[in-house]
Computed example of a mutant assay.
Amino acid sequence: MKVTRRASLVVLLIVLLGGMLFAAGSEYTVVKGDTLWEIAKAYGVDWKEIAELNGITDEFALQVGTVLKIPEAYTEISVMIPNIDHEIPAVICIPNGDGPFPLVVMLHGTGSDKNEAGGGYLLAAPALAKAGIASVRFDFIGNGESTADYINYNFTSAVDDTNIAFAYAASLPRVDGHRAGIMGWSQGGTIALLAAGQNPAYKSVLCWAGAPDLSGVGSLEAYEIAKQNGYYELTFEWRSPLKLGLQWFDEAYGTDVLQVFSNSSAPVLAINGSEDTVVDPVNAQRIVDASRNEKSKVLIIEGADHTFNIFTGDMTAFNQLIEATVDWFSKTL
């Protein structure tokens, strides 16, 4: 059966837990040979939910050309999580159903936000939800919807925000905080490794182009400027500059990320693209070598760059990335 989605989405917004909950749905046009069960399976929902939503009383009498409203397999909650002197903008994606569901904390990279490059996490979170896995993604200090000053972002603040976001999501009724994983892209992978090495609550780890060494982001020359000014201005082609604070440099140069991660007993899947020129793919093996878990492994996606080709229009590599991510957490949580 071929599934085709219409561009229009039915979006329901309701106030929940101090935030906004988005229950998105799509539409499907019945073609010859379709069954309600097959359609439901393709979308990861119960066929009875489709029948109820569309007023279908005879599931064997589908008419070709009928446009069915499809309920989504998840809901998303947009919240602001308090953390002492700032708030953490976050989105929690929870599968529909009774649960409790395992949880994955998703960490973004340098200069990005909770939805990640090319909307990468907008694709990953629903994919996890359809596999019965909840997730929380959030903006680090000074990124996305965060109103805090990026100059205060550093390893310590990032790990702290990570643990606060995890604790918030894990406290929700249909979430099982005892089955928690953590993942990060690029510098988000750095923070994921640090958080896992310091917090045994994370039972599984995954890195998308994880960077155990960030000297490429902040050079020694930039470090010297930060010592003089209190910060170094980091520029990007796709967004406004960010001020890397002196504490970030002190921690980036003074922290053995892999040594910290070696304290974790969780398995790690380190994924890199073979054509990544930002984070050398050899770092995937370095991460696995630092792990104490024999189930840890490396996955190199051939032909993929640092963003797994999400901006090229060819989604082959990114789809492989999503599939590997869902499979990893399904098996380890």
Results as ranks from 00 to 15, higher is better:
residue 196 A to K: 11
residue 144 G to C: 08
residue 96 N to K: 15
residue 69 K to P: 00
residue 276 D to Q: 02
residue 172 L to P: 12
residue 261 F to A: 11
residue 269 L to S: 11
residue 262 S to G: 12
residue 280 D to N: 15
residue 125 A to N: 03
residue 215 S to W: 04
residue 37 W to V: 13
residue 153 Y to I: 01
residue 75 T to I: 11
residue 302 E to R: 08
residue 165 A to Y: 04
residue 13 L to N: 14
residue 256 D to E: 12
residue 41 K to R: 15
residue 143 N to K: 01
residue 132 G to E: 02
residue 231 Y to L: 05
residue 166 F to N: 00
residue 81 I to F: 06
residue 40 A to F: 07
residue 156 T to I: 05
residue 112 S to I: 08
residue 60 F to K: 15
residue 316 T to M: 05
residue 198 Q to L: 13
residue 154 N to Y: 00
residue 33 G to Q: 07
residue 151 I to H: 06
residue 101 F to V: 06
residue 205 V to I: 11
residue 98 D to Y: 01
residue 227 K to Y: 02
residue 129 A to T: 07
residue 273 G to F: 07
residue 219 S to G: 09
residue 264 S to F: 03
residue 123 L to E: 13
residue 5 R to E: 13
residue 238 W to V: 10
residue 260 V to Q: 13
residue 320 Q to W: 00
residue 333 L to M: 11
residue 270 A to Q: 03
residue 307 T to G: 14
residue 272 N to W: 04
residue 238 W to F: 15
residue 261 F to D: 04
residue 204 S to F: 07
residue 90 A to W: 04
residue 321 L to N: 06
residue 18 G to W: 09
residue 253 Y to H: 07
residue 316 T to E: 13
residue 236 F to P: 09
residue 163 N to M: 13
residue 59 E to R: 14
residue 61 A to N: 13
residue 221 E to R: 09
residue 49 E to A: 14
residue 32 K to V: 02
residue 302 E to Q: 14
residue 63 Q to K: 15
residue 241 P to L: 07
residue 282 V to G: 02
residue 165 A to E: 01
residue 326 V to H: 01
residue 102 P to A: 03
residue 296 S to L: 02
residue 3 V to P: 02
residue 281 P to T: 04
residue 187 Q to C: 00
residue 5 R to L: 14
residue 34 D to P: 01
residue 38 E to W: 02
residue 110 T to V: 14
residue 318 F to Q: 11
residue 178 H to R: 14
